[in-house]
Simulated scan of single mutants.
Amino acid sequence: MTKICSLWLLLLLCFPQIPDAREKDPEARMDATLSAAQKAQEKVEAFLQEEERQRQAIRALEAEVEALIYENHMLEKRMARQQERLLALEGEGEEAAGLARLVEPLLGDLLTFLEKRMEGLVPFRLEERKGRLQTLRSALEDGEMDTQSRFRRALEVVEAELNLGLFPDAAAATVAVEGEMLHGTLLHLGAAGLFFLSPDKALVARWSGERGLFLPLDATAARSVERAFAMVERRVPAGLIWLTLPEVP
């Protein structure tokens, strides 16, 4: 009895508009039944389509949940790695601070040494050299500059000083020769010394470190120095010069 009632309810749901068999002829009843069956089929298909859409939406949500879980996992790994880097940087910072405490006083001593050393060297390109020392001093006094940058500046100054006189070099200058201020050209020949040549080439002098002044050379030495000047200024082809110079105290 229960099964019959359920079947009857299902028929009522699927075929709600089946007309009374006593009201119409068999052909009309058949058309009405087919129409009702078609509508019922459309409802079933609509229900199935809706169910499929919901399943697809659920699958999309599940995929999004999996992606979020993976992303969260990767973020946790990145955060852990960044934390490790921060700890390493803190250790490096402490090590760098300790190194800076050792290096900074040495840079100050180096600056003092270079200033005293410059007083005993030949007076060649003094303005440039003093300017580099002043730049280094400013770097050491600059609270915003780190130790690495200060050390780099110090290396630049030391390199420039070591290269002084390594190759022949000429520069315009005003010097005192026998108590007279003269404009001319200085020629640095390294170990051979520092020489001065007047514009009219009438005077050639050599620097005396002990006496702290330029002393004129004799005619023979002056001609050799003049030729060296011409080679450095590329007015004549480079060649070998035999430069015989007297001892300059």
Rank of each mutant, 00 (worst) to 15 (best):
E226F: 02
I241P: 03
E128W: 14
L215N: 03
V248S: 02
P246D: 10
A221C: 01
R101N: 05
A80F: 04
P168F: 09
I241W: 05
P246H: 05
P199R: 11
E90N: 14
R53V: 11
N72H: 13
G165H: 03
I18W: 08
E42H: 11
E159V: 13
C5W: 09
R137G: 11
E84Y: 03
S208A: 13
R132N: 13
T174L: 03
E226M: 10
E92A: 11
S35I: 06
V236G: 02
L111C: 08
L243H: 08
C5G: 06
F15M: 07
V204P: 06
L245Q: 00
A40D: 04
E233M: 08
A21S: 07
L215C: 11
E104I: 05
L186A: 02
R81V: 08
T33N: 11
F47S: 11
A202T: 14
G120E: 14
L197T: 14
F167E: 12
S149F: 01
A96D: 12
V177H: 12
L102Y: 01
F47P: 00
E51F: 04
G165Y: 02
A67L: 05
C14D: 14
F151K: 02
M231F: 02
A170C: 12
L9V: 14
D31E: 14
E71G: 10
R137T: 04
E119S: 03
K130C: 06
L187K: 06
F47H: 06
L99Y: 06
H188F: 15
R78S: 09
A171H: 14
S198M: 09
N72W: 01
G108L: 00
E226P: 00
Q134M: 09
E127L: 10
F196W: 01
E210F: 04
L75Q: 10
A97P: 00
L9W: 08
R85S: 07
F167R: 13
K201R: 15
L99H: 09
P168W: 05
R152V: 04
L166D: 12
R55H: 07
M181T: 11
L186Y: 04
A88C: 05
M118E: 15
E45L: 12
D25E: 12
Q41L: 14
A202E: 15
P26Y: 02
A222T: 12
A139N: 09
A160C: 13
L189H: 00
L102F: 01
E84T: 10
T2F: 10
A219Y: 04
A228Y: 08
A37K: 04
E95I: 05
L162S: 05
E23F: 11
G190V: 01
S208R: 04
S198L: 05
D200S: 05
W207G: 09
E66V: 00
P19T: 10
L106K: 14
L162N: 07
L136I: 01
L48Y: 10
T112Y: 08
W8F: 06
L7S: 12
P26C: 04
Q82H: 11
F229P: 02
E115Q: 15
E119A: 08
L155T: 06
L99D: 12
V236I: 10
A230R: 00
R227T: 09
A100K: 04
P168V: 10
P249Y: 05
L197K: 08
E178C: 06
G120D: 07
R85H: 12
V248Q: 02
A228K: 03
E119C: 01
D25I: 04
V175I: 10
S138W: 07
V157F: 11
S224Q: 15
A205F: 02
L240W: 07
G143H: 09
G98A: 10
S35G: 15
